[in-house]
Amino acid sequence: MDALMAALVLGAICQAGDKTPWLAAILADRFRSPALVIAAAGVALAGNYALGVVAASWITPLLTPEARQLLLALALVLAGLSTTLRSRTPDRLSGWRLGAVATSVLGLAIMIVGDRMQFIVLGLAARSELPWLAAVGGTLGALSVVAPAAVIGERRWLALPQPAIRIASALVLVVTGVIAGLNAVRLL
Results as ranks from 00 to 15, higher is better:
178 V>L: 14
129 E>N: 12
138 G>I: 14
20 T>S: 13
37 V>M: 06
177 G>K: 03
49 Y>M: 14
97 R>K: 14
73 A>C: 07
150 A>S: 13
63 L>A: 07
129 E>D: 15
176 T>M: 10
133 L>F: 13
1 M>R: 09
40 A>N: 07
146 V>A: 02
38 I>T: 14
83 T>L: 01
12 A>Q: 04
12 A>S: 12
15 Q>C: 09
5 M>Q: 10
186 R>L: 11
40 A>I: 14
90 P>T: 09
140 L>S: 06
97 R>Y: 09
124 L>W: 12
40 A>D: 03
53 V>Y: 02
102 A>N: 06
165 I>P: 00
130 L>N: 10
179 I>G: 05
32 R>G: 08
174 V>S: 03
112 I>V: 15
70 L>S: 07
47 G>P: 01
106 L>Q: 10
64 T>H: 12
64 T>Q: 13
140 L>G: 05
106 L>M: 15
130 L>Q: 12
110 I>M: 15
54 V>R: 04
152 I>S: 00
51 L>V: 15
116 R>A: 05
151 V>I: 15
75 A>G: 09
156 R>Y: 12
5 M>L: 15
166 R>E: 02
7 A>N: 06
9 V>L: 10
182 L>F: 11
48 N>I: 12
109 A>S: 15
26 I>Y: 00
49 Y>C: 03
99 G>Q: 09
31 F>N: 07
25 A>H: 00
176 T>C: 04
125 A>Y: 07
72 L>Y: 10
128 S>H: 09
167 I>N: 00
37 V>W: 01
57 S>Y: 09
95 G>Y: 11
82 S>R: 11
76 L>E: 08
65 P>D: 14
39 A>N: 08
22 W>D: 02
155 R>N: 08
158 L>R: 13
116 R>C: 03
165 I>G: 01
180 A>S: 12
50 A>M: 10
103 T>E: 00
137 G>T: 11
178 V>F: 07
31 F>C: 09
85 L>F: 13
74 L>G: 10
126 A>V: 10
56 A>M: 08
89 T>E: 11
121 V>M: 09
135 A>P: 01
77 V>K: 05
35 A>S: 13
8 L>G: 03
172 V>S: 02
21 P>A: 04
95 G>L: 11
22 W>A: 00
160 L>P: 00
157 W>V: 01
25 A>R: 01
154 E>V: 14
138 G>A: 10
168 A>W: 00
19 K>G: 14
181 G>T: 09
107 G>M: 04
57 S>K: 14
15 Q>A: 07
11 G>R: 06
157 W>G: 01
181 G>I: 08
113 V>W: 12
114 G>S: 13
182 L>S: 06
86 R>S: 13
92 R>T: 14
12 A>K: 00
70 L>V: 11
55 A>I: 14
93 L>A: 08
115 D>F: 03
59 I>M: 13
57 S>L: 15
177 G>S: 09
26 I>Q: 02
29 D>A: 11
94 S>R: 12
15 Q>W: 06
50 A>G: 06
33 S>H: 12
118 Q>A: 11
186 R>P: 01
87 S>C: 06
84 T>C: 00
9 V>E: 01
120 I>V: 15
147 A>F: 05
98 L>P: 01
45 L>C: 04
98 L>C: 08
88 R>Y: 08
75 A>R: 08
98 L>D: 05
169 S>M: 01
100 A>Y: 03
35 A>K: 11
24 A>N: 05
163 P>K: 03
